[in-house]
């Protein structure tokens, strides 16, 4: 339970804000352009992936990681969980945007 809370705290501390920002931007881009060109999907996804990778690299340099290491959580586990949560949020929002378009 403590480790699960640690995983959520990690996501909240490092990925939630850039994740929400990019999800909003991505959904707006998709909403405004998808009715003219469906190929807007992959660039939006790529933008999201680049921002996630950049955040993950910045986090790798962070000293705060030792809080999570002391909870027996590795960097790989932390980033993998953040990836799942972040992209789940992203695809859920994108799906809702698609529903609004149809």
């Amino acid at each position: 339970m403590v480790r699960i809370r640690g995983l959520f705290l990690f996501y909240r501390s490092f990925f939630l804000k850039p994740g929400l920002l990019l999800t909003t931007i991505g959904c707006c881009l998709y909403y405004k352009n998808a009715k003219y060109a469906l190929s807007v999907g992959p660039p939006v996804f790529l933008l999201k992936a680049i921002v996630f990778a950049t955040t993950a690299y910045i986090v790798y340099r962070s000293k705060k990681l030792y809080y999570y290491y002391n909870l027996q959580l590795s960097y790989f586990t932390l980033v993998l969980t953040a990836f799942v949560l972040d992209f789940f949020l992203f695809f859920t929002c994108l799906k809702m945007t698609k529903y609004l378009l149809s």
Binding site: R5, R12, K63, K64, L65, Y66, Y69, N70, Q72, S74
Partner: peptide, 28 residues
Amino acid sequence: YKEQGLIRYLPQFDFLPRSIRLQSFADA
């Protein structure tokens, strides 16, 4: 460090997330 209940490391720098409560940190 991945072994349950084996080792803890206090680094020489501040490593605590600022957004947790004091008791939550101790409990964790």
